[in-house]
Simulated scan of single mutants.
Amino acid sequence: MKSDLVKMSLILGLLSCVGPVAIDMYLPALPDIAEGLGAPIEATQYTLMSYFIAFGVCQLFYGPASDMFGRKPPLYFGLVLFGLASIGCAVASTIESLIALRFLQGVGAASVMSIPRAVIRDHYTGARATRLMTTVMLVISISPMLAPLIGSILIVPFGWRSVFVLISLLTLASLFLAVSSLPETLERENRVPFRFSAMLKAFTTLFRDPVYVGLTCIGGFGIASFFSFLATASFLYTGFYGLTPTEFSLAFALNALGFFISSQFAANLGMRFGSVAVVKWATAGFAISSLVMCAVVFSGFEQFILLVVMLIVTNVFLGLVIPTSMVLSLEEHGPIAGTAAALGGAVQMLLGALAIVLTSLIFDGTPQPLTGAIATCGAAALVISRLTLRGIAHLAVPSN
């Protein structure tokens, strides 16, 4: 990979880590937060839901804003807001205030979800864009491997509030990186003056494109399956299986291993077989593996090692589905890449938030609700891929 791609992927990957770190690092603290604030499990899970709702909806504003003002000013705003909300979370005294502050965190974090994808589309398409996206995800993959472990190390001596203090410091470092190292990729002559009618027209164009909608929903159900895991994993692993916070962090990192490894092959597979084919076959693998996992668990085989292995296999297919579908969804919408990335991110995050709500409502402390939710997402993604991508060939041709 050329040096410019490596540098850009590192910068975008580190910036994109801000949102995942705010999720992964505090996952081991969820039981402690519930106990410390005297809140039920469901209310603690709503701190995740409020974050993802804001994270999703606000991308609809960051996308058009980045098309109008350039990529960097909205990114600065989001990082500053995220940092201030993180400080607020560190001193929250009630579960209600923590839910509200997590919402504000999500408003800020939305900027580092949609804008990096638009930055990629500003310069690259086809296989090079997929390669850059997968390299960015390689950097992001460090978060689920290390962030929960760092969180658990902090929680034991300093309590759950220390996690948000560290997140605040990391946000400050990210802001410095954005100011000093990220170039502005949208030239002034290519910026689109804000007009409500133009934004409405862009959204209408995107919603009328069945391939864009289909690819967005395929990736969205993949993300929703992971969010179901996020909402229940700490309670399931520490409650049902009796793991300590540190052991949970290590198990969580192991679950991310399949996604981490397979995502690095997405670009090469796309160049060889076509990206549409990769999405079709990887979605089928995701659906089949998740349905098998669900059937095994509902049959009474709930052993921890078996569950972890089946989750790793499922994540192998997600590592191919998510980055490839993200890149393909933007392929035909270069002039409105910021808006397309924002709308796609919003839809995907809202699907994830819905998954958290539904999984939280049915969660009973056992693996069945989690595996059932993941299998439902896998089946939905498979149906959508077969309905929207059959007969599609032009997006499968690699481009430079």
Rank of each mutant, 00 (worst) to 15 (best):
M293N: 07
A43V: 13
N400F: 08
T47V: 07
A353Q: 05
G151I: 00
L230P: 01
L351N: 12
M137N: 09
C58I: 03
I120S: 04
A353I: 05
L257I: 15
T371W: 01
L328N: 00
I218L: 04
M310G: 00
V21D: 03
M49K: 04
S162Y: 09
V18Q: 09
N315L: 14
L200R: 14
R195T: 13
L186T: 07
S290V: 08
F194T: 09
S289Y: 02
E96Y: 13
S152T: 05
Y76P: 04
M293S: 09
A396M: 11
T205H: 13
G274A: 14
C294W: 04
F207T: 15
V165E: 07
E302G: 05
A109K: 04
F226Y: 12
V309R: 08
A380V: 14
S66M: 01
V21R: 05
Y26F: 15
C89T: 10
F103V: 08
W281C: 04
L306K: 02
C17Q: 04
P323W: 00
D364W: 11
A342H: 03
N315D: 06
H123I: 05
S141W: 01
I33P: 03
M133C: 11
N268I: 09
G222K: 06
I288H: 09
I150Q: 03
P369G: 11
G38Q: 11
I167W: 00
V292N: 00
G38R: 13
L166I: 14
G106W: 09
M137Q: 12
A90H: 05
E35S: 14
T244S: 15
M349A: 14
S16N: 12
L37M: 14
A224K: 04
L75M: 14
A353D: 05
C89A: 13
F317T: 09
L311S: 01
A340E: 02
F69E: 03
T371A: 09
A39M: 13
A266C: 08
V107G: 01
F207K: 08
G13C: 12
A256C: 13
G13E: 04
A34Q: 11
P335K: 08
L361M: 14
T216H: 08
S275A: 15
P369N: 06
P398H: 10
